[in-house]
Design a protein around this nucleic acid. Structure first.
Length: 99
DNA sequence: AACTTGACTTCCG
DNA sequence: CCGGAAGCCAAGT
């Protein structure tokens, strides 16, 4: 599901989990992302928490990298927060499921 | 089996 | 709007 998030758009952990058929398992989405093989080259930076904020340790290099990548693709952060109303990815209901 | 830990979310004050 | 409490549930100890 993360791989489907288009350039310049974002999704939340809960949203990813739900779309993957795992309603209410947002933490699992985070767990999966943390353990995902680097080789998959997933656009992990497009996943934010329900408040539109980065969920990596504030001040960490990882958080800084995520912020940079987002801005690099045009996603604006206001006070460290992304306006989900404006950037949230809305998957097409008729999109073919993986597998 | 019991307890702790989270790249989380929602509700309350 | 912010912080805390509670709910959540797979993994790790």
């Amino acid at each position: 599901m993360v791989a489907r998030i288009p350039h310049g758009r974002v999704a939340t952990y809960g949203q990813i989990a739900a779309e993957a058929g795992l309603l209410r398992r947002a933490r699992l989405a985070g767990y999966a992302l943390r353990h995902a093989p680097e080789a998959l080259a997933l656009p992990w930076h497009r996943v934010l928490n329900a408040q539109g904020r980065i969920s990596l340790p504030a001040g960490s290099t990882a958080a800084a990298r995520q912020r940079e990548r987002l801005q690099a693709e045009g996603v604006e952060l206001v006070n460290g927060r992304v306006d989900l109303k404006r950037y949230r990815w809305q998957p097409r209901s008729d999109a073919p499921l993986l597998d």
